[in-house]
Design a binder for these strands. Sequence first.
RNA 1: GGCGGCGUAGCCAAGUGGCUAAGGCGAAGGUCUGCAAAACCUUUAUUCAUCGGUUCGAUUCCGAUCGCCGCCUCCA
Length: 479
Amino acid sequence: MALHLYNSLTRKKELFEPLQAGRVHMYVCGPTVYDYPHIGHAKSYIAFDIINRYLRFSGYRVRYVQNITDVGHLLDSGEDRILRGAEREQVEPMELVERYTAAYFRAMDALNVLRPDISPHAAGHVPEQIEMVQKLLENGYAYEVNGSVYFNVEKWPDYGKLSGRRVDEQQAGARLEINTEKRHPADFALWKRAEPEHLMQWSSPWGKGYPGWHIECSAMAMKYLGESIDIHGGGMENKFPHHDCEIAQSEAVTGKPFVKYWLHNNMVLVDGVKMSKSLGNFTTISDALEKFSGDQLRFFILQTHYKSPVDFTDEAVQAASQGLERLRGAYRKLSERLDRRSEAGAEQMAVMNLTAETRRRFIEAMDDDFNTPLAIGVLFDCAREINKLLDAQQDDIDAALPPVKALFDSLAGDVLGLSLSGEEDGQSAAPFIELLIDLRNAFRQERNWSMADRIRDELQNRGVVLEDSKESTLWRFEK
RNA sequence: GGCGGCGUAGCCAAGUGGCUAAGGCGAAGGUCUGCAAAACCUUUAUUCAUCGGUUCGAUUCCGAUCGCCGCCUCCA
């Protein structure tokens, strides 16, 4: 089975066939950088990170573009989010943007999310956006009123095809004041007139102003990925209006399909309701990292499919972390065995079959719309088999072990982005810990159990767990 | 009201028109161990929200009902 993915546009699972053989052009809606990123952002960008990683693993050349929104994204009040944030923190708008762009990438790095190939800023692409608006005016799909330009949805019968909405069914003014400049309540802003005191404004054919929110994604996606792109991703809540607006304005300019596959990830919930800025029920990623490692958060998120919601609680992350520890345990034992293996012995069929089967089942899971929970289940099955093999104390499996470790490095490491060795931290303490272990083992030789247990307990109190086996004593940090 | 989605064991979570309904966490018992830890073995859903229908057969398809969530121009 080749890669299949669920396309929001057709509401079906489809065989993935890129527009150009062997290449994938992917665009994902990035963050608006006016505050710290929270767990909701983590789920979203981890989901697309997995897609990016898996496409590369599958042999595609990928260009992954994810924008940084730093202008034009308005609040209900009509204020620009960036300007509101700049006022709150008493800094220049671009200073605020810099601050939270850095915070965003710091958080993503901690979660081991690979950087996109291009992270374009909206404010750095105003000419491209103006150019698109001009084309829409020339085509007759847009109109200008008092220095603002709106997209005319009545000229575009397909408007709403992604979300399945029809404009005449919308309740105008249900949530916001009706804008009297618009010809139709569903018309959306491509360009907004700026009042003189507005801090972020650019010259345009229609006077001083700033771009509407939706136009940035179309302009930047097309600039870097072409008029038709393979994959466009984003959060479900952006299907309407954001993505429907992107489709309408892009296709009205080019006359070509804008996106072949639309992918939408689901939400993070807190006590059953969506985690969001406006509800104030969010946990920032940096706060979560105080309690859990990036790997633990990542593993927790990947144990739910990207299209399903996940309820975020400390208990749930803790339970997932126990599972991750299980995978780590198998990997640790495998690594330790490899350090002192003998070259003797033939490759055993049992081990070779395990490697092949694990790889096959993992790929089958991921090919089915990136089913990470199922893929992780495959790794758990493999871990159990590894533990059994290593427990069996057979020397003749040694030669077959390197491919098993390489497989884990590839599937868990490269594709899922998990670090199983857990060896990054505290290595400077290793010689001293190992010294204590040697001492303890000397006590054990003498059957001095009280001293041996005291060393073990004291180490445990300091977060170091010992595990005795026949040949050696393994140790690890416990988070 | 409109559009989309969900309801699987104590908890989390895959999945399939018929073959033992994955896996993880937790819990109980056992093996191993000086004792632990880790690991391994066994047990933990005769049943997939409820009620109908299609079918030789449905948890899986269809319909209704109940409950929950998201969106309907703020959000990843």
